[in-house]
Simulated assay, not measured.
Amino acid sequence: MAVEIWPRLAHDELKRAVEVSEKRELDWLIEALHETLTDLKHGLEHCYSLLAPIDPGSTLAVSTPRNEVVKGYVTRVGTRIVKGTIHVRLRTLPPQTLTIDPDHPIHLAPLTSLHTFLTQAIDLLGITLSYSYPTAHPPPRTTTTSSAQFLAAQLRLLSQSLLEASSLLKGPPLTTSDPTWTSRSIAPSHFLPPPNPTHPSPLAHAANGVPPLSFHLGIQDSCLVLWLRSLEPADAPVNFGTKLALAIGTTRRLEHDEAEKTFGFCCSHDASPAPTDDGRGGGPVTRHASFPAGDVPLSGRRPVDVFVREKVRIETADPSLLSLSSKLAALGRTLAAARRNLAAVMGEEEDREGEDA
């Protein structure tokens, strides 16, 4: 079945009529997008408020289910863990209590980056609204090609920011460990009592520069995840009794996915002095062979090779982060629909860059 226009129009007149119709449709769509972008801005501001440092914050239980290996709590205010007490009873270490110093809170790097992306997204929407819609109720106007392209480019940047924010909340896959623990484990200075000869911190460095316990916090699937690892220097001598017990089977090493692997370990922001050379006169140390590629130790110390004797993972659901993740996903879908509509009216190929798969 064919569709014909009556009365018939000449080819040039028909072409001009199509252009006028497409122009009117683009004008209408851009005016309609004003309400969509305003709602997106309000939604992002609500997401921003979920990360705001408002007291008393969120108190989260940090405990292993069905056993007493790890029992305690932490309090998150914004992007920081400001206080908490955790009792640890690992099989390879004496029982100990870890108390977070309120004067030296722990900054969660994924949430700090997420805060930055949300700030950028809100600022970007503010610029877009002020440029494309000068007043709260803009009068009908003729949309130029350049203004439509500017709006499309701004929405693409916004989509990329939302995707990055969602990726930070999703974190690494649940089936894998976060490799950043080797360089971003929490330094002893964040815990009480402070390290000193008479009252050493539970995470204080031993004489060989390796703390007995790695305390690492991360985000996976919008949940706060704590990894505790009992560490042992790779070059530590094994006494004859342990060797014999392992040989005859009376003692067994704990089995986990990081057993028998060597890691280059260095605490984040460690206050200990950094060595000036590698001990062989080779000049300043910049990277260790076993240190993860692209991850430079923040403390300035040379990473030390360690084994992971024992490993415990504790996952804690955070209602604010779960709500934030759902909100970002909904905003991402709304933005994707707006971008598809704009691309279709502009006659451009659909751009899926920055959209969540």
Rank of each mutant, 00 (worst) to 15 (best):
L50C: 07
E348G: 12
I127S: 13
L174M: 10
C47D: 08
D277I: 03
L322N: 13
P284D: 03
T85V: 05
L37R: 07
T59W: 06
T38I: 12
K261G: 00
L90C: 06
G281K: 11
L29H: 10
L108I: 07
K327P: 07
P139L: 08
L163R: 11
D12T: 14
K261C: 10
F240S: 10
W6L: 03
S146I: 05
E31R: 04
I81C: 01
S201K: 03
S58M: 15
L40S: 12
I86Q: 00
A52R: 09
P212I: 06
K170W: 06
I248M: 09
A293C: 12
G332S: 08
D39R: 14
S161N: 00
G241K: 14
T242P: 00
T128D: 04
T198G: 01
E349G: 02
V308L: 00
T198Q: 05
H137V: 14
E35P: 05
R339K: 13
S58V: 09
V306H: 06
P102T: 03
I100F: 02
E164M: 13
R184S: 15
L168V: 00
Q149A: 08
Q120E: 13
E22K: 10
H104L: 02
A152R: 09
A61K: 07
S230L: 05
L98P: 04
P7N: 10
N196D: 15
F215E: 06
L328I: 01
K311V: 15
R229P: 02
Q96E: 02
R91K: 04
D305P: 07
L26H: 10
A152H: 11
N67I: 04
K23L: 14
E349M: 08
H205M: 03
P138W: 14
T251S: 11
H216N: 01
S320A: 15
P95D: 03
Q160K: 10
V304C: 12
E310L: 14
A337H: 12
A17G: 01
F191E: 01
Q120H: 14
E348R: 04
A121L: 04
T38S: 14
A330I: 14
G279T: 01
K15A: 12
A152G: 11
D235F: 09
T276P: 13
A338D: 00
A121P: 00
E349V: 02
